[in-house]
């Protein structure tokens, strides 16, 4: 799935800044994501994690700095931007499946309309992907008929259908009932094993420990600490991270 042997980083952020009015949500972010890497972004709410994630496919614009994807600056608009987005999968907290389309149509829309894949071929591949995430039997249903966990797995299949170079996960399990979290994480762990480049905003430490190559801790719009998962959770370097971990680990 990744171009093995290509050692140039897939994503490079340099001096990225973003304001929402007077709120400085991203402060001088410098970050590199390698091909095949699984990066977990963790931190308190309002710390800029989601904004960072959304900036990489330009669902959020930035005020300063540069973002390179696959060696090229992000296109600003139009067809070039649509082209970039087709190469970067995105999975949202609230699933955002197309409510008026069936599960299978959700997965085939991108390939047929963006890539021009023939319908039959897209449907065959769509079914394979739905089987892979365990939703094959629900292909002709509508999103509202599925549970949250099932919808999120469809959303992952929808992203995979575009054969993306990476997938961004913006708090993919935060809106799920507790008993559905694991089924989604299992799919994500499988993707990580297969070598997909992933950036995952999450508080799921189990996932971070099992699948992540690196953890980035963000607070107040800054990257406070970058570390390996084991080091980060057992022996964080910064006080800000220790303080955050002490609050979430007590549960």
């Amino acid at each position: 799935m990744t171009e093995n042997g290509d050692s140039t980083p897939l994503v490079v952020l340099e001096g990225v800044n973003k304001h929402f009015g007077s709120l400085h949500v991203l402060r001088d972010i410098n970050l590199t994501i390698s091909r095949g890497e699984v990066l977990v972004v963790i931190g308190p709410s309002g710390g800029g994690k989601s904004t960072l994630c959304r900036a990489i496919n330009r669902l959020e614009t930035i005020d300063g700095g540069t973002i390179l994807f696959d060696g090229k600056p992000l296109p600003e608009e139009g067809k070039a931007l649509a082209g970039l987005r087709s190469e970067v999968g995105m999975v949202f907290q609230s699933f955002n499946l197309f409510a008026h389309k069936t599960i299978l149509e959700n997965v085939t829309l991108g390939p047929t309309r963006v890539r021009g894949v023939p319908k039959a071929q897209a449907e065959q591949r769509g079914m394979e992907l739905l089987e892979r995430v365990g939703i094959g039997a629900q292909a002709s249903k509508y999103p509202a008929q599925l549970s949250g966990g099932q919808q999120q797995r469809v959303a992952i299949a929808r992203a995979l259908a575009m054969d993306p170079k990476m997938i961004l996960f913006d708090e993919p399990t935060s809106a799920l009932d507790p008993e559905m979290v694991q089924e989604v994480l299992d799919v994500m762990i499988g993707l990580a094993r297969d070598g997909m480049t992933m950036m995952v905003v999450t508080h799921e430490m189990g996932f971070a420990r099992r699948a992540a190559n690196r953890v980035v801790f963000m607070a107040e719009g800054q990257i406070v600490e970058e570390n390996t998962p084991d080091e980060f959770f057992t022996n964080a370097r910064t006080d800000r991270a220790k303080d955050f971990l002490s609050k979430i680990l007590t549960h």
């Binding site: 649509a82 309309r113 575009m162």
Partner: peptide
């Protein structure tokens, strides 16, 4: 129509007018 529908449409690479027409 929730904002997320348009975001998901753009995220798979549909242009503005495609997402307007299809989603």
């Amino acid at each position: 129509v929730p904002m997320g529908q348009a975001e998901a449409a753009r995220a798979i690479g549909l242009t503005f007018f495609q997402s307007l027409r299809m989603i």
